[in-house]
Write a protein that binds this DNA or RNA. Structure first.
Length: 193
DNA sequence: CTCGGGATTGAG
DNA sequence: TCAATCCCGAGC
């Protein structure tokens, strides 16, 4: 796993429909080379945040210092601190000046991981990701995504988690996850919508 | 400058 | 069911 540098997704993968990227990331491997180790987790749950209108998106208002990278070129990380204690990892999608990103919500541990990777806050802790990774290029080491090493998984979808404030956007089916996968996060087990 | 709140989590 | 915890961003 560490001997050969893994093949990795290129920028054009992220320069597409945010929903397509969110689905196509499922099954891919998130890789972080840090402190002489290679941490690897399979992406099993994502959420799409796309455009100016989506009230659940940080970019729905306008460009601000925090969300500015969402308006940048695809293939970069958007990492922010939530609730004063947890980091959330997103991948920027779509062309420059169009705000969009995919939130990574859960991983299946593959290598070098010894704590839970279920949930956006837990997976950043497990992968050693924090605000120092905000804006980094995710098409090359130390942080990148390797393509699926398996067939296309069966994909299920639901409303996004924790965005009840977003009005009609709260119920949009923009959360994607591997069907029947036990590594998918289950906050408050299927909360009502 | 002040202040309300959050793309969450773990404890009680 | 709720507190932790702090940065962000809206409004004055």
């Amino acid at each position: 796993m560490n001997k050969h540098r893994m093949h990795r997704l290129r920028r054009d993968f992220y320069d597409r429909s945010t929903l397509a990227v969110a689905k196509d990331l499922l099954g891919c491997l998130l890789v972080h080379e840090v402190a002489g180790k290679t941490l690897v987790g399979r992406i099993v749950e994502t959420e799409a945040y796309d455009g100016f209108d989506d009230r659940a998106s940080h970019a729905s208002r306008r460009k601000t210092p925090r969300n500015e990278v969402m308006f940048q070129e695809p293939g970069h990380a958007y990492v922010y601190l939530i609730y004063g204690m947890h980091h959330c990892l997103n991948f920027v999608t779509r062309e420059k000046d169009y705000p969009a990103a995919v939130l990574i919500r859960a991983l299946e541990p593959v290598a070098g991981i010894d704590v839970s990777t279920q949930g956006p806050g837990r997976l950043t802790r497990a992968m050693g990701i924090d605000r120092s990774h905000d804006r980094v290029d995710i098409t090359r080491p130390p942080l990148y995504v390797a393509p699926r090493d398996m067939g296309e998984p069966l994909i299920d979808c639901s409303a996004r988690i924790g965005v009840a404030y977003a009005g009609e956007w709260a119920s949009a089916l923009r959360r994607f996850f591997v069907k029947d996968c036990s590594w998918v996060s289950a906050p408050r087990s299927s909360r009502r919508q």
